[in-house]
Structures are given as structure tokens and as C-alpha cells.
Design a protein around this nucleic acid. Sequence first.
RNA 1: GGCGGGAUAGCUCAGUCGGUAGAGCAGAGGACUGAAAAUCCUUGUGUCCCCAGUUCAAUUCUGGGUCCUGCCA
Length: 319
Amino acid sequence: MSDQPEIIVIAGPTASGKSELALRIAQDFNGEIISADSMQLYRGLDIGTAKPSAEELFKVKHHLLNLFDIDQKLDVYIFLKLAEAAIIDIRRRGKLPIVAGGTGFYIRSLLYGLNELPGDPVLRAGLDRQYDHDAGFEKLKELMQKLDSADYERWHKHRRKLIRALEVFKLTGKSITELQTLNTPRMRYRATVWSLAWERDELKRRIATRTAAMLEAGWIAEAAEAISQGILNTPTARQVLGYSIINEYLDGKISYERMQEEIITSTWQLARRQLTWFRNQHPEAETIAMPTDYSVLAAKLKNGATHRQAECFLGQLKK
RNA sequence: GGCGGGAUAGCUCAGUCGGUAGAGCAGAGGACUGAAAAUCCUUGUGUCCCCAGUUCAAUUCUGGGUCCUGCCA
């Protein structure tokens, strides 16, 4: 039985049916679910992030849901530490960890680890204050051009990434680009990784249908509440899709139909980025053409040896 | 009915003092190692509404037509 995977990962774009599949697998294989979703980590964004229902939460234990308030700042590293701890916890209790979510960056960091580069929240907060605005960006570029031309070349259009590069440079005296190239990330788990893939138009239809359902389920009231709590000005949670569009509707700037259309469009754009990510960043993943009968997938797991981590590593970073 | 404005990329529109045209959005592809549901990069041939006229040459000028739209009746 040593051939069995240590963890199962179900990835894919939004509205691809990850949660549903994870739930069935968890029930049939004595598992618990770890959400790999940057926004489900927050309390209050239930409908808007399509969190599992109370009933589903009752059936199967879920981890990494509702752990933070909306005004708290999050990042991959925080997720990574929590997810690693959750895996250890679940396995210690003899259960199967099932990671399910659409935040590819988080999933990859869990599977391959993050280079042990230093981070200093206090330093970064200072850098944010100094450079994370249009005026500061110009100064940041000038500074980085002098300090480290490799980082500057790579990131001079991404303010945030340049700030992180500066942070690492200040802590180590070295270029983040250089440090990231030091070792090749390899799979750290014996994992079965599935990437759910739908035919394009079908996924679009699912997104449209689900958006309508979410709005009918009370998303607008939920958003109004989050907005009154200031979500639009929070450091991380303000990036959630939908809420600022709903805000425009609440302000009377756009019609209901327009709001719904814009949400569907943004959701599709998200899905496309996710598809690009899973297509190119996950050599270990097996693509599952949806819809696929659950029985077929369950059989795959029972047969074991579905993981293929041994030969998987991420390609060298391009210069 | 009268007097205007408009008709150009899937959408909103710019432009061509006559040499067959370009932005934003959408769409497509890509990147991504501490904000990732974010951020960024690449990618634009379409009867320039129709017909006739002037011209070497008309989407651009002239005339007629069709369809939108504003104000007055």
C-alpha cells in the first residue's frame, strides 16, 4: 500500500466542479479537504467565493476556510505553512488529505515548495508605504536599476514584484532572480494531481449559470455587508472578484444586467488565467476531461499508482 | 411633417485637408517563487451603410436612397 498517494490534489478553473468531486472522494476514501483558494480563507465571502454549503461542511471536514478577517493581509507563504500543517494533521489521524482549489500559485507552492527566501513583514510594510503607489514606483525603478539590473529588467513593469525583489535584496544583498534559480523545485509529495478540463463553451455556460445562481442566492446582500466593512480598501481581500462590480450596481452606476455581464466576463478571464497556469505550471498534473464518470475516477484511485511525482520538477526559470 | 447629428473591427468610437484605416473594451496566446479571484506582456483586414457622379484614385467630395438618433411641431 506504500504505492498509495500521500495526498490528492484537485485543481482546475473556477466552476469546473472541484469541490463536488473532492467531497465525493473524501467520503469514499476517508479523506478531509484542504481548500487551496486565496479568497475562501476569509470569513464572510461565502456566496461570492462559492464556499461549500453548511451541509457539505457537516459531511466532510474542511480545512483552510474562514480563518481570517477581511482586513488581514495574506500571502502564499501563510497559506503554505497552514496547508503543510493541515496535511500533517490529517495524515496523523490516518486520513487522506485532499487539496482542492483554483489558486494555482498556492497549489504549486505546496507541491514544489517555495525557495527559502527571507521575508520580513515589517520591512515590506515600510517598502509598501514608500513605493506602492504611482509616484513611488518611478523611484523604485530608479533604485532597483542601480541595485540589481537583473531584477529590474525582469520586473520593472510589475510594481509588486519589484517591491518583493527589493525586500529580498535588502535582506540578503542578492538578486531574487539569482536566488530563485539556485535549485530546481521538485515534487515534495507523492501526490495524485488532477486538473479538471471542460470544453470551452461548456465552461463558459457553467460560469454564466453559476453567476446567476449566486446572485439569486443573495450575493448582493453579502457584498453590501462586506463593502460596509470596507472590503474595497483592504490590503488583500479587496481583490476578490465581483464585489467592486456589485458596488457599482449598488451605487446606481450600472444596471443589474450590466453587473451580471461584467461579473461573468471577469470570471471567464479568471478561468482563462487559471487554465493557462495549470496547463503550463503543473507537469505533474493529469488532465481529466469533464464530465468524467465518478466511478472511473474512483477506480483510478483504488488501483493506486496514479501519482507521477518521481520525474516531475519545474523547469529552470527563464531569464 | 420641419431642421439637425450619425452610419468605420464582436461593442463604444477616433480618423483619413481624396492614395483602401486605428484606439479602448471584448476575444485569443503567454508570463508568474511572500497581495495570485491579483499583476503584467503579446496579438487588430474590417463589403469604412447602399447606388450613382466627379477623379488617375473615393471610406473620405457631390447627389440620391435606406436605417438609427436629437430638437421643434
